[in-house]
């Protein structure tokens, strides 16, 4: 059966890929910290974007999410991002109201 053998079919990742991912991560981290330290324009948006890029690299390459089947990828990514995103967005919406009242 197709799904049974898939464990062995999992492609072998060469160390080169990992080194590439590592270099990318280092560049992203460096840029992120630099941006935050220097306070460049659009810094917050940039940091969030870099954060997501890093998270993508770590989860998809190091945690092998890339080699999982699509429904699992979808459940993991949506399950986490959507739930946390909703919680964040809605309580921060309320937080803005609280700070407006206290001003």
């Amino acid at each position: 059966m197709e799904n049974l053998g898939s464990h062995t079919q999992e492609p072998i990742v060469s160390p080169k890929t990992f080194i590439l991912v590592w270099v990318l991560l280092m560049i992203l981290t460096g840029f992120e910290i630099f941006a935050a330290y220097k306070g460049i324009p659009w810094k917050n948006e940039l940091i969030l974007a870099l954060m997501l890029a890093q998270a993508y690299l770590v989860s998809f390459y190091f945690m092998h999410l890339r080699f999982e089947k699509f429904p699992l990828i979808l459940s993991v990514v949506l399950g986490v991002l959507l739930t946390v995103g909703l919680l964040c967005a809605l309580i921060i919406w309320d937080g803005i109201h609280i700070i407006q009242l206290s001003r």
């Binding site: 197709e2 464990h7 089947k69």
Partner: peptide
Amino acid sequence: FAPSAFSR
């Protein structure tokens, strides 16, 4: 085992 994306 039923064929499922999750069953591996």
